[in-house]
């Protein structure tokens, strides 16, 4: 379940994040929703690692292969004798290989970006139109409850479970709503349960 607090300014939002962390939630459970980017750490801290550029690289290599096969492979399969020129012309093959590699690089960048962002996503996740008008959303994923997992070296940030997880989901939600309200949230929106 997700909970979204809407704040008028960055100060209130940052205050809410600090208090949520103090209460036992972990960074991986909290994210900000903003219509302009904020530097990492101003509101929340997020992992700087991403994998989509490897996907881009893979696509580019595939594109180069496709381009080479298209130009050189087909010339080899369907030879056109032109004087004493080679069947596979290196210069044109290089051009076609380059263009298709670049095309696949660019398409791979966009596809990889969306895959890593997990978009498109048209499900009804908590959101508020006020975010487009400059308000800041602090979105909290409520843990269903269980044993805490400390954020120690060797533990992926997404696998951390804060001590707040000892409480039930309903109690966690109640605490979080209270904290956001105290920090100056204009309103708190909960995810609509199916």
């Amino acid at each position: 379940m997700e909970l979204l607090g809407i704040f008028k300014d960055a100060e209130g939002a940052a205050r809410a994040v600090e208090r949520l962390l103090g209460e036992g939630f972990v960074e991986a459970q909290i994210t900000s929703l903003t219509s302009v980017p904020y530097p990492d750490g101003v509101l929340v801290k997020t992992s700087q690692r991403s994998w989509f550029r490897w996907f881009t690289l893979g696509c580019g290599i595939i594109g180069a292969g496709v381009g080479f096969l298209l130009a050189a492979g087909t010339a080899w399969l369907y030879p056109v004798q032109t004087g004493d020129k080679p069947i596979i012309a290196l210069y044109p093959t290089g051009i076609v290989t380059y263009e298709l590699a670049m095309l696949f690089f660019m398409v791979g960048t966009i596809v990889g970006m969306f895959l890593e962002m997990k978009l498109p996503d048209f499900s009804r996740r908590p959101y508020d139109g006020a975010i487009a008008e400059g308000c800041i959303g602090i979105c909290l994923v409520i843990h269903p409850g269980g044993e805490p997992v400390a954020c120690e070296p060797g533990v992926e940030p997404t696998e951390c479970v804060g001590p707040i997880a000892l409480l039930s989901a309903a109690e966690q939600k109640e605490r979080a709503e209270e904290i956001m309200g105290d920090a100056g949230a204009l309103r708190v929106v909960a995810e609509v349960q199916p």
Binding site: S35, F52, R53, I110, L119, S123, G137
Partner: peptide
């Protein structure tokens, strides 16, 4: 595409923009 402007979306968006500009 369901963009909400999460911190993670912005991070990846900026990396993708820079990469596309270079390509």
């Amino acid at each position: 595409m369901g963009w909400r402007g999460t911190a993670r979306e912005w991070l990846i968006f900026h990396k993708a923009s820079t990469l596309m500009a270079a390509l």
